[in-house]
Design a binder for these strands. Structure first.
Lengths: 256, 256
DNA sequence: CGAATAGTGTCTGTAAGACACTATTTT
DNA sequence: AAAATAGTGTCTTACAGACACTATTCG
C-alpha cells in the first residue's frame, strides 16, 4: 500500500495547514486470543493483571499499538513477547471492539487477533502481570457472571474470547487450520484429536481419514523416521506434514 | 457490556491519577461498503471527494467516530446520512485497516463495515462531496493501477472493497443474506438474480428452487396480492417474504 | 494369546448436478 | 398458436454416516 506516499495535485499545500487535532483522539490496542492444545485440551493464553484497572483479573495478552507499526505488527510483537519464542503458527484479525465503557481509563479501541499454534511452552509473565498461563477453555465461564470458581476476565475479554472460539470452531470446518495445532510430523490421530478438542467431538475415524486424505494438499506423507517411534503399544502410525491447501471443499461437517 | 462501569477495589484511587496522554493518539474512522442491486447489477455506493487529500477521487462513504458513540453506531449514522433514508438492510463489521501510510494527513485507523440493502434510492452528495452515486462493481478496476477509464479509488479503498466483495460472495453460500438485497414481497426469480449478480452465475433454476424451499425459514410464502401483478408476459410467480433463518446447512454451492 | 492402536472396506442415505417436462400468462 | 416466464419431476453422481473388518505393534 504505497498510495498514501504519492502526492496528488494540490495536496502539498493542503497538508501544510491541516490540523489533525480537530478530531477526537483514541488509544488503539491489540488483544490476542492465542490457542493451543495442552494435554489434549483446547487452551488459551491469559495473563493476570498486576496493574489497575482490573488488578488481579485474568486478561487476554495485548498492548498499545505504537506509532511506527500497524495493528498486525503490534500483534506479532506482543505474540513474541508473551510466548517468549518466535511464533510459527497462524495469526489473523478477529474483529474490533469499540464500546465506550470497555476501559474505564479512557476511550480505547481494540483490534482483536486470533492466533493458533502447536504445543507452545509455558509463557513467562511480563513485567505488568502477576502470572501468565494456559487456561483450558472448558475451565472458563464465558457465558455470564455466575462463575463457579472460574476466573473472572477483565474488560470485555469474555466477549472477545467467545467470538474467537466461534471463529476457531467454524474455521475448522472449511479450512485446514487444524494442522496449525500440531507439531510436525503428526499422525492422523493427532489431527483428529484437534477436532475432538475444539468441537468436543470428532467425526468417525474412518470417515475422518477419508475426508482428510481426499482433500488434496491438506496433508503430505512423511517418512516414518526411527526417531518418531512412539513408545505406546499398537500399530505404528503413518506420519504426515502440513500441505499447501488452506481450504476444504466441501467442508468437514461437525458431528450432530 | 457494563463491566467497565463497575468499580473494583482500589481502582478509584488509581483512576484519579491516571494520565491517558501517555499513549499515542489515533484518529478512528468508519468506512462503509454499501451494496445494492441496480438494474440487475451489483453496485456499491461511492462519493467523489471535494476535499484534500484525494480531491476528486471516488471513495467509500465514511467519517470519524465521535467520542460519544462506538464504531457500529458511527456506521449506522453515516449510513443514514449518506443514503438519506433509515437504512433497513444488513450491517456488519468487515475488518480494521491500520497501515501507517493509509492517510497522508495523520495516523488513522479505520473500521470498515459491510452493508447490504434492497433497491436503495439515488444518494444525495454530502457537503464534503462533489457527487455520490451507485457504481456497478464490474465498472471498477480493483486489481491494480492500470485502470481503463475506471475511477481511481482514494486511500486503501480498493483493498477494502475487494475484501468486502469477498465477504459478500462467500456469505451468500452459507447464509440467507441474499434476501437482504430484494424488496418484499419477492419471487424466487428475484432471489436468484441476486446470486446471478453477486456470483456472476447462479445455480440451475430447478436446483435453486429445491435448495431455497428445502431450507426451512429461508423464505415464507406470501399472498399473491393483486397489487403485485407484473406487467410482463408469462405465468405469474409465487411471492415470498424473508424468513427467520440466517444460515443454510449445508451451504448453497457456487456453480463450477 | 489379548489388548491397544492404526488403517481399510462397504452399505446406505442425503443432497447436488443435469436436464426434460408441465403450467399459466400475454400478444 | 407462439413466446415468455414459472414451476415440477426424475435420473445420476458425489459424498457423508455408520459400522464391520483387517493390520501391526507390545506385554
Amino acid at each position: 500500500m504505497t498510495s498514501g506516499q504519492v502526492q496528488r495535485p494540490g495536496e502539498q499545500e493542503f497538508l501544510g495547514v491541516y490540523r489533525s487535532a480537530d478530531f477526537p483522539p483514541f488509544a488503539v490496542t491489540v488483544d490476542l486470543a492465542v490457542f493451543t492444545l495442552r494435554s489434549g485440551l483446547l487452551s488459551v493464553l491469559l495473563v493476570q493483571r498486576r496493574d489497575h484497572p482490573y488488578r488481579g483479573y485474568w486478561a487476554l495478552p495485548g498492548g498499545f499499538v505504537r506509532e511506527d507499526e500497524n495493528a498486525e505488527e503490534a500483534a506479532e510483537r506482543e505474540l513474541t513477547e508473551e510466548t517468549g519464542t518466535i511464533f510459527g503458527g497462524h495469526l489473523e484479525q478477529l474483529r474490533t471492539y469499540s464500546d465506550l465503557a470497555r476501559d474505564p481509563r479512557m476511550r480505547v479501541v481494540s483490534v482483536a487477533y486470533l492466533a493458533l499454534g502447536p504445543g507452545l511452552p509455558d509463557p513467562r509473565p511480563g513485567s505488568d502481570a502477576f502470572a501468565a498461563r494456559w487456561w483450558p477453555v472448558a475451565d472458563l465461564d464465558l457465558a455470564d457472571a455466575a462463575s463457579h470458581g472460574a476466573p473472572a476476565l477483565a474488560f470485555d475479554h469474555a466477549q472477545i474470547l467467545t467470538d474467537a472460539l466461534d471463529r476457531v470452531r467454524s474455521k475448522l470446518e472449511y479450512t485446514t487450520l487444524a494442522a496449525s495445532f500440531v507439531d510436525e510430523p503428526f499422525t492422523l490421530a493427532d489431527l483428529r484429536r484437534v477436532y475432538e478438542a475444539v468441537w468436543g467431538n470428532a467425526p468417525d475415524l474412518g470417515n475422518f481419514r477419508r475426508k482428510v486424505l481426499s482433500t488434496e494438499g491438506f496433508v503430505i506423507e512423511a517418512d516414518r523416521s526411527p526417531a518418531a517411534a512412539v513408545p505406546a503399544a499398537g500399530r505404528p502410525p503413518l506420519l504426515y506434514r502440513r500441505g499447501r491447501a488452506t481450504f476444504m471443499h466441501p467442508p468437514m461437517l461437525r458431528p450432530q
